[in-house]
Amino acid sequence: MSQTIERIETIYKAISELSKLEQNDEIVKTIARLRSILIHLEKKAQKEYCVWDRIQLARHIDRPRAQYYIDRIVEDFIEIHGDRSFSDDRAIIGGIGKIGKHTVTIIAQNKGNNAKENVERNFGMPHPEGYRKALRLMKQAEKFNRPVVCLIDTPGAYCGIGAEERGQGEAIARNIMEMSRLKVPIISGIIGEGGSGGALALGVADRFFMQENTTYSILSPEGFASILWKDSKRAEEAAEKMRMTAKDLLGFEIIDHIIGEPTGGAHKDPQQAAHKVKKYLIEQLDILETKNIEKLVQLRYERFRKYGEFGMAT
């Protein structure tokens, strides 16, 4: 399947190049027709997406990032920086703003759409100070009684010397524990990659969504293959076994909802993708607003308490 999608991508690019060369009615018409054929082919291909195709879409360089969603969804946004003890981690954007009528705290992992942005954002891989900034903002949200919305898009928490020295494990653990008892509603969702503990550290929530072409997993398929089979090249095979697509996660009841994406992936029509995310967020914020917070926190506990399958030895 991947090949078909790659070919369609190539033709798309060729068409947009063509439209730059010359513009007349004939060409515009032909291009429009070609595009509709491609959309049809893409829809057909989408039905047969394998896990690896979805991973490619989840990691697509043009995929809309958290910053895009914030710009489209959140009004009066004020970005808030820093963990107050070490630095400001640019892999996580935090701030306050309005989604519909709701004032919320937004915490979002942000990758880049090009090499320069990715260097600035560390490819969406937070350091401990990123998670500590997130926690500071959650506590602030609790103080001012506003819901928290977390957008997840990370290959995983950063692995490096500084990250270890400053307690990456502790930072993630602390977030998980504090989110489990935070006395405001939390909505989390995956808008790209949901990699391991680095994703879970923003993922202990009352509502959890995934966009259609995103993934959530214990580790990247490459890392998984390398740990289990000592061969990272078997990533595609690992991906099939790992059960990491939105549909799989819905099956495990780890997520509540799949938000559909435009044909060919969120990057094909980011505006539409953002509209759908906004609609879901407003719906859920409306519902969560009416809930008793003590009860909500208890339900959150029970939600995570039930995860896992085990047996009884005889």
């Binding site: 998980i176 008892r181 993922g203 740990i227 990491m244 780890i254 995570f304 896992g308």
Partner: peptide, 26 residues
């Protein structure tokens, strides 16, 4: 670390244990 063979369910054990600790802490 987490047990790879149980995939995402192993990841959820981190949340399960930590949430229980929050109650012990409370």
């Amino acid at each position: 670390g987490a047990r790879m063979q149980e995939g995402i369910l192993s990841l959820m054990q981190m949340a399960k244990t930590s949430s229980a600790l929050a109650k012990h802490d409370d």
